[in-house]
Simulated scan of single mutants.
Amino acid sequence: MTTPSNKIEELQRRLQSAAAETAQLRSELAIARDRQSASAEILRNIAASPSDARPVFAAIASSSKRLLDGFSATVLQFTGDELHLVAFTPTSPEADEGLEASFPRKISDFPTFALVRDGETIQFPDSEADDVPQLNRELARLRGFRSVLFMPLMNRGTPVGMISVTRAVTGAFAPDLVQLLQTFADQAVIAIENARLFNETREALERQTATADILKVMAASPSDVQPVFDAIAANANRLIGGFSTAVLRYVDGAAHLAAFTPT
């Protein structure tokens, strides 16, 4: 027989369960909003700096550390056969100095690259485990972390860098956090590609403008080549990023200085 007391207890249990579910939903909603805000911030950085991916890398490092509850985060980019440190979150002056001093380095000398070059995500739940490469173990001791997640940056199947997030405690990263870092990695690749295309387009436009400028000078002074040589020296020095540029003419076996940029 159900008594008033039993009904009250059942009602209390239901209320407690509903309160717990509400709290859980609020927590999940807050986490989702935080992640969306971080992604939106990174996208704003991409839009605000189309020619320079460094502000994007800095935002990704900061958001990765915060949202994955990390100890530190780094963003590395492959340039030629070298690995460059392009962003990191600070830990201590000594550790930060040691980290910066270890880059750039040859990709072939960095064992983690061999693990992520095929686009695989790699975790070291315990940096002191026997299967952890010695270099990674030394970096963990230097920086003061015990677990790390490596996420490759893949552009059309080619690795162009990686993001790493560390923790001060041992343990694997949850699947939803791995997926979140994948989102940040995709945004980093967008920033890299945007900067490349933007700079290539700008360089092509600058070269076309320089060529047109020289052609205009030629048309304006058909009887005098000196203004043309001056324009060639100035444009060549600017576009190549030179310290100085000289134009020489060879007349009767002798070299004559025809134009130069001042130093």
Results as ranks from 00 to 15, higher is better:
54 R>M: 06
52 D>E: 08
118 D>W: 01
111 P>E: 06
29 L>Y: 02
91 T>C: 06
94 E>G: 01
102 S>A: 15
107 I>A: 07
54 R>D: 09
147 S>G: 13
105 R>A: 04
49 S>D: 11
54 R>V: 06
103 F>P: 01
30 A>Y: 00
130 D>K: 12
48 A>I: 04
132 V>H: 03
44 R>H: 09
85 L>R: 09
52 D>H: 04
77 Q>V: 15
39 S>R: 04
105 R>K: 09
88 F>D: 13
146 R>G: 11
23 A>C: 00
146 R>A: 15
119 G>P: 06
69 D>P: 00
86 V>C: 06
41 E>H: 12
58 A>I: 08
127 S>Q: 06
86 V>H: 05
72 S>A: 14
142 L>C: 04
103 F>G: 02
66 R>T: 15
26 R>H: 03
126 D>N: 15
83 L>A: 05
53 A>Q: 05
131 D>Q: 05
84 H>Y: 10
136 N>W: 09
103 F>K: 00
118 D>K: 07
75 V>R: 10
123 Q>D: 05
94 E>D: 11
88 F>M: 10
114 A>Q: 11
36 Q>L: 14
128 E>S: 15
60 I>A: 05
110 F>T: 06
93 P>T: 03
88 F>V: 01
147 S>K: 12
86 V>T: 13
97 E>P: 02
26 R>Y: 00
71 F>W: 13
26 R>W: 00
91 T>Y: 02
69 D>N: 14
85 L>V: 07
78 F>L: 09
62 S>D: 13
58 A>N: 10
45 N>R: 15
35 R>A: 02
126 D>E: 07
134 Q>L: 12
68 L>Q: 01
32 A>T: 09
134 Q>T: 13
54 R>Q: 10
96 D>M: 04
86 V>S: 06
36 Q>R: 02
129 A>N: 07
93 P>M: 04
109 D>K: 12
74 T>K: 11
106 K>Y: 02
59 A>Q: 07
78 F>W: 04
140 A>T: 08
82 E>D: 10
127 S>T: 15
28 E>R: 05
146 R>W: 14
143 R>S: 11
94 E>H: 08
105 R>Q: 12
99 L>V: 08
49 S>P: 01
91 T>D: 03
55 P>R: 07
117 R>N: 04
24 Q>A: 10
75 V>M: 14
69 D>R: 11
117 R>D: 06
142 L>I: 02
137 R>V: 08
77 Q>L: 13
96 D>N: 13
109 D>C: 03
77 Q>G: 00
77 Q>F: 04
138 E>S: 12
76 L>N: 08
135 L>W: 12
40 A>E: 12
90 P>Y: 01
79 T>I: 07
128 E>L: 12
35 R>M: 03
126 D>T: 07
64 S>N: 08
50 P>M: 04
101 A>R: 11
68 L>R: 02
38 A>L: 12
140 A>I: 11
141 R>L: 12
126 D>P: 07
102 S>W: 01
41 E>G: 09
100 E>T: 12
63 S>G: 09
116 V>Q: 01
